[in-house]
Computed example of a mutant assay.
Amino acid sequence: MTRQPHDQFAKEYLEELLTSLGKVETSKDVKSEVREIDIWFVPNTSPSNTSELGLLAKMAATSCLFEPFRNAPSEVEIRSCLLKLYTVHGDLLRQAKREKRSLSEGELPCLWILTPSCSSRMLNGFGAKIQESENWVEGVYFLPKLLKGGIVAINQLPIVEDTLWLRVLGKGRTQKQAVEELVQLSEGSSKWDQLLEILASWRKNIEVRDNVSDEDRELIMNLSPAYLKQREEWRQEGLQEGRQEGEVTLLLRLLRRRFREITPDLEQRITSLSIPQLEALVDAQLDFSNLDDLVTWLSAQS
Score class of each variant (00 low, 15 high):
L53H: 03
V248A: 03
E107Y: 01
T87I: 12
Q175G: 04
Q230A: 14
Y13L: 06
Q301C: 08
K28A: 13
V152S: 01
E15T: 14
R101M: 03
S201H: 15
E138R: 09
R231M: 15
S133G: 08
L82F: 10
G150P: 02
V282H: 15
K229M: 14
R260D: 06
D293G: 11
L147Q: 13
L298F: 06
R231P: 06
V76S: 09
K129E: 11
K84V: 07
D265Q: 13
S117E: 08
N135K: 07
N155A: 08
L147T: 13
V140E: 01
Y13W: 12
E15C: 11
L65S: 01
A60I: 02
Y141T: 02
R101E: 03
L123Y: 09
S299K: 15
L286C: 10
E215I: 06
F259G: 04
L55N: 02
V34H: 11
E138H: 06
S74R: 03
D29K: 14
L169V: 04
D216F: 04
P225G: 04
T62F: 07
L108S: 00
V248G: 02
W136S: 00
L281A: 03
F69D: 00
D293T: 10
T26I: 15
Y227W: 15
S213N: 06
E16P: 07
D29Y: 13
T271E: 02
K148H: 12
N211Y: 08
